[in-house]
Amino acid sequence: MAGVSGCIKYSMFIFNFLFWLCGILILALAIWVRVSKDGQEILSSGDADVNSNVSVNILIAVGAIIMILGFLGCCGAVKESRCMLLLFFIGLLLILLLQVAAGILGATFKSEYDRVLNETLYENVKYLSATDDNAKAFQQALAEFQEEFKCCGLVRGAADWGSNFQQFSKSCECPEMPDDSCTVYDGKYVYKQPCISLLKGLMAKHIIIIIGIAFGLAVVEILGLVFSMVLYCQIGNK
Rank of each mutant, 00 (worst) to 15 (best):
V4W: 12
S5Q: 02
G6W: 13
G6Q: 15
G6R: 13
I8E: 01
I8F: 12
Y10E: 12
S11D: 07
M12Y: 10
M12W: 11
I14L: 07
I14Y: 09
F15T: 05
F17H: 15
L18M: 10
F19T: 00
W20G: 09
L21V: 14
L29P: 06
A30Y: 00
A30S: 03
I31W: 00
I31P: 04
I31V: 08
W32T: 07
V33N: 04
R34Q: 11
R34T: 13
V35K: 04
S36Y: 02
K37Y: 14
D38W: 11
G39P: 07
Q40T: 05
L43D: 05
L43N: 03
S44P: 03
D47A: 13
D47G: 12
A48R: 15
V50I: 06
S55I: 11
V56R: 01
V56C: 14
L59H: 10
A61T: 15
A61M: 08
G63L: 03
G63N: 00
I65E: 05
M67G: 07
M67P: 02
I68W: 08
I68P: 01
L69Q: 03
F71N: 02
F71D: 02
F71P: 02
C74N: 03
C74Y: 02
A77T: 00
A77N: 05
V78C: 10
